[in-house]
Design a protein around this nucleic acid. Structure first.
Lengths: 132, 132
DNA sequence: GTCGTTGCAAAGCCTTTGCAGGGAA
DNA sequence: TTCCCTGCAAAGGCTTTGCAACGAC
């Protein structure tokens, strides 16, 4: 049976608190703030467990590569901020799937990735600051 | 100065003839039909050259991972067929970028990935055949 | 002939796996 | 106590690099 460990709880905590898609290194970094000895292999293994139990899903981001996010969210898309390099989830969908699909093709799902500057960074830029 | 070689021309030929985004293995496979001795390292090196000279661009496909495609095409998106596992370019765009962007965010670009069954495979399925 | 290019093999980087000690139940 | 989990290190898979031979110009 699966056991509840400090490392696993720390990793779940990271996802719950940051509440955005994360890459392996981000999980490791934020996890080590909670469990300093957290090992990279453990992160990989537990991410794999979370995927298998359906608590996380994995996807390739066009810019950042492999990311993981919590399951159970409504249909949403992703916004990548080129300043802070974070990915945010945008609820809702502005795509007309039927209109986007050519004759003869059958669309079953879609993903949209926006890229630009997030709210936090655009306001800081205006103030002459820069969050990284 | 850059030299024109059989291997490079074979690789360009592959992109021109298949006219869709390709992964490294697809380039190697199709390239070897033209130059049987084509080496994997050569493919990687020439893809890198093509990227540097701006003849190709690279992106991460949500399902297939790293793909390369010719530059200079109009704004378009990608359709992935889960039957033949090919990626097609779909000209045009059905996204309302402004509507898709939350207050305070600044969108500079976007990518859309559709997934389903392509025209070729859906017609073959109807006929009880299956192209792979 | 010069020097960019290629094939092969070794090296790198990211991810997975083997193993023995440690910890949850 | 049982045996799942972890840290560490070694191994895998994909990509890059070193090197000597090759070939475009």
């Amino acid at each position: 049976m699966k056991r509840k460990t400090t490392q696993k709880e720390a990793m779940r905590d990271v996802f719950r608190q940051l509440d955005r898609p994360l890459g392996i290194e981000e999980i490791l970094k934020a996890g080590r703030e909670r469990v300093p000895a957290l090992n990279l292999a453990t992160v990989y293994r537990n991410v794999k467990l979370f995927l298998e139990e359906g608590w996380l899903v994995r996807f390739n981001h066009p810019t950042l590569g492999t990311l993981y996010e919590r399951t159970g969210k409504d249909h949403h898309h992703h916004f990548y901020c080129r300043i802070c390099e974070r990915v945010f989830e945008l609820p809702g969908c502005a795509l007309n799937e039927k209109q986007a699909t050519p004759e003869g093709f059958v669309t079953e799902s879609h993903e949209i990735f926006l890229s630009g500057v997030c709210m936090s960074c655009s306001s800081h830029v205006l103030e002459g600051q820069c969050e990284v």
